[in-house]
């Protein structure tokens, strides 16, 4: 365990309401996120969440872990999007490496075990 304690177990259930809220905040009204008919006709077969929504659990866990509102100067977060997140998914985030590693390695995983996002982060 790191001196900062255990990495928090943050999870978040993605809903169409949270996707709509994210579209409103970001101005990203791509039909894949907000139009069920257009999304159903796409290669994804239905609505998918904006990519950063899948990262949200990690960002919340990181700030909770550090006890801060904003990540400190020198922090770096690198994200690879692995799979789409859909309404109804519950995304949890956990470290996949040691808590004192630099960079930290983490994964955001849906309730069925699908890794939707992997993260490498430096949190000074």
């Amino acid at each position: 365990m790191s001196a900062r304690g255990e990495f928090p177990n943050v999870s978040e259930t993605v809903t169409q309401a949270s996707i709509d809220a994210y579209a409103e905040l970001s101005g990203d009204f791509n039909p894949l996120h907000v139009d069920p008919v257009a999304a159903a006709a796409s290669e994804f077969g239905g609505i998918i969440a904006h990519g950063p929504i899948a990262l949200h659990a990690f960002l919340r866990a990181a700030t909770d872990w550090l006890g801060v509102e904003a990540l400190p100067p020198g922090s770096r977060v690198a994200v690879t999007y692995r799979a789409p997140t859909r309404p109804g998914d519950t995304i949890g985030c956990a470290l996949t490496g040691a808590a004192d590693a630099d960079p930290l390695e983490a994964a955001c995983v849906s309730q069925d075990g699908t890794t939707v996002v992997t993260v490498r982060a430096t949190l000074p």
Binding site: G51, A70, P72, P73, G74, S75, V77, V79, T80, Y81
Partner: peptide, 14 residues
């Protein structure tokens, strides 16, 4: 049809 593959963030100041 665009797909977000990766994202990086570097924090310099609050």
């Amino acid at each position: 049809g665009g797909i977000l593959a990766k994202q990086e963030l570097e924090f310099h100041a609050p």
